[in-house]
């Protein structure tokens, strides 16, 4: 089988993997690196569960060939919490605001929100909705997810009681 060698930064570490050419980024992250927080919800880029950041931009890892990330940086949900498991403010906000039910969409949601806030630190509720439109959730009706993202204000703190 034809293998491609891929070197990239993964959650802050320089890593290398050799995978078949047709491996998707999702498959490589789950199978080679056991980053099981990257979820496959549809495999077609229609649900956003597999969202990761490549060079700080949100992408559907199910639609991307692993070879694409050679020389790039990749961040997954596992790379979000800081040392000693200190949660990212977005993670804290999702917990506190009840934005998590079954949780399958949650890692992708949080990564999408991360990318959104990096570009627009103070989005309106509508900007949050449009910025995260590529992430489907069947449990929450999205309201509490909007609450959670809205609560994470400029400077990265999680404050206030939300709406």
């Amino acid at each position: 089988m034809i293998q491609v060698k891929i070197s990239f930064q993964l959650n802050g570490d320089a890593v290398t993997a050799e995978v078949p050419d047709h491996t998707t980024l999702l498959e490589m992250l789950r199978e080679e690196f056991e980053l099981l927080g990257v979820k496959e919800g549809c495999g077609h880029g229609e649900c956003g569960s597999c969202t990761v950041l490549v060079d700080q931009k949100s992408v559907n890892s199910c639609l991307m060939l692993a070879a694409y990330v050679n020389g790039r940086t990749v961040q997954t949900i596992e790379g979000l919490a800081g040392a000693q498991g200190r949660l990212d403010p977005l993670q804290e906000a999702f917990v506190k605001h009840g934005a998590v039910q079954c949780g399958f969409c949650t890692p992708g949601m949080i990564m999408s929100a991360k990318a959104l806030l990096a570009e627009n630190p103070n989005p309106s509720r509508d900007e949050i909705r449009w910025g995260m439109a590529g992430n489907l959730c069947r449990c929450t009706g999205y309201v509490k997810i909007v609450d959670a993202v809205e609560s994470v204000c400029k400077g990265g703190c999680s404050c206030g009681e939300g709406s």
């Binding site: 880029g45 490549v54 949100s58 559907n60 999408s112 995260m132 590529g134 992430n135």
Partner: peptide
């Protein structure tokens, strides 16, 4: 067009 994730690719 699609999602932000799709538009990024």
């Amino acid at each position: 067009l699609g999602s932000v994730q799709v538009r990024n690719l």
